[in-house]
């Protein structure tokens, strides 16, 4: 399966490169309206046609992909950091603190993720600038998505703390800080990397769901959620097939993320 993983990484790198150079590759600004040609079919000037407001769909796909591909990893970084702090501390200290923190994490996990997300999103103002809406959406994903990862990190930190090399380090006079800094944190890194990569496709999918429901990134800024929301206006699957290009790209990118983390994700 190594070649499949390599192909997935190459595809993701190609998409990331296209997004980095979005300004050069895109034929128009993502918000520019060609008012005389709304809902135009694919052509040499507009590779994926235009949307109902006359905006070039290819440009919007490039910019939308850039936003999602940049901010989903940022949210995953926040979630992994919180998981490391909460789970790592609980696992390292152990005892009553670990039990209390893990009970809190279990309570957090028992609340349905999407219900919790839209409840907290509703607390934030909905009528905000597009940039603020992007920050709110992805910051929320990062701040609410740590719990499952924290459980894994806690279990790993506990087992590392009780491992032979940690016992030997302690017996040799290593202080708690030294043990944490030189022995536990470096060994926790693979788990944190895995949790980071697993979180990215989850956050991309959640942002898309929020965007389709009108609770994600606000217009005119494109994101995958707002791009996929266009599907609501279509009358059938067969007419205007090029309009499904954003969906195909979305599925390809999320599939590639899944393939990259496949060996870390499967439980058995």
């Amino acid at each position: 399966m190594k070649w499949v993983r390599r192909a997935a990484i190459i595809f993701l790198l190609a998409v990331a490169l296209a997004c980095v150079f979005a300004e050069r590759l895109a034929p128009a600004d993502y918000a520019h309206q060609f008012r005389d040609i709304p809902d135009a079919p694919a052509s040499a000037a507009h590779w994926l046609g235009t949307d109902d407001l006359g905006r070039d769909r290819f440009s919007r796909v490039l910019h939308g992909t850039r936003i999602s591909l940049l901010l989903a990893p940022a949210a995953a970084l926040i979630a992994s950091f919180l998981a490391a702090v909460v789970g790592g501390t609980a696992g390292f200290v152990g005892g009553a603190l670990e039990r209390a923190v893990m009970s809190g994490t279990d309570l957090f996990l028992s609340l349905p993720w999407f219900f919790l997300l839209i409840t907290v999103r509703a607390l934030m103002p909905l009528n905000v600038s597009p940039i603020t809406s992007v920050i709110i959406t992805f910051a929320l994903l990062g701040c609410l998505g740590w719990a499952a990862a924290a459980r894994v990190v806690c279990a790993d930190a506990r087992s590392l703390k009780n491992s032979d090399f940690a016992l030997q380090a302690r017996a040799s006079g290593s202080s708690g800080y030294r043990l944490l800094r030189h022995h536990l944190l470096p060994n926790l890194r693979p788990v944190l990397y895995a949790q980071f990569w697993i979180s990215i496709p989850v956050f991309i999918l959640t942002e898309a769901n929020l965007g389709i429901l009108g609770l994600g990134v606000s217009e005119p800024l494109p994101s995958w959620g707002s791009l996929l929301r266009e599907l609501e206006g279509y009358s059938s699957v067969t007419s205007n097939a090029w309009q499904f290009a954003p969906l195909l790209l979305f599925i390809s990118v999320v599939s590639c993320f899944h393939l990259v983390v496949l060996d870390r994700e499967l439980p058995a």
Binding site: L205, L231, S235
Partner: peptide, 19 residues
């Protein structure tokens, strides 16, 4: 299963409405 895991629920619902 892999493809279904990559499609947002809302898009799947939209495709069901379309079909």
């Amino acid at each position: 299963a892999g493809i279904l895991l990559c499609i947002p629920v809302a898009v799947l619902a939209l495709l069901f409405v379309l079909t």
